[in-house]
């Protein structure tokens, strides 16, 4: 899969629930509509939580990939 270009990167490695969600919310707030946030997390719970968060807020979870316990999310601001 070709790498999606992001406007902002957020590293949440080592952080546990609910910090990745809270930091993602703050980062998304700083973007304009249509811009993309790349978020990296190691909390395995963030996989379901990010999907739920995107579902509720309406921001688009463009992709999620995992490699050796590191999760990478791309989120497009609505």
């Amino acid at each position: 899969m070709s790498e999606i270009t992001s406007n902002l990167e957020l590293n949440c490695e080592g952080l546990n629930c609910p910090l990745p969600i809270l930091k993602t919310k703050k980062a998304i707030d700083s973007l304009n509509s249509g811009e993309v946030l790349k978020m990296i997390a190691t909390d395995p719970g963030s996989v379901n939580d990010m999907a739920s968060w995107a579902n509720r807020t309406g921001h688009e979870l463009v992709s999620h990939t995992e490699s050796a316990g590191v999760h990478t999310f791309f989120i497009r601001k609505k």
């Binding site: 629930c17 609910p18 969600i21 809270l22 993602t24 919310k25 739920s52 968060w53 509720r56 807020t57």
Partner: peptide
């Protein structure tokens, strides 16, 4: 605090 902050992050 976990639930309230997360709720707010989910636009509640």
């Amino acid at each position: 605090f976990i639930l309230a902050s997360t709720a707010a992050a989910m636009d509640m």
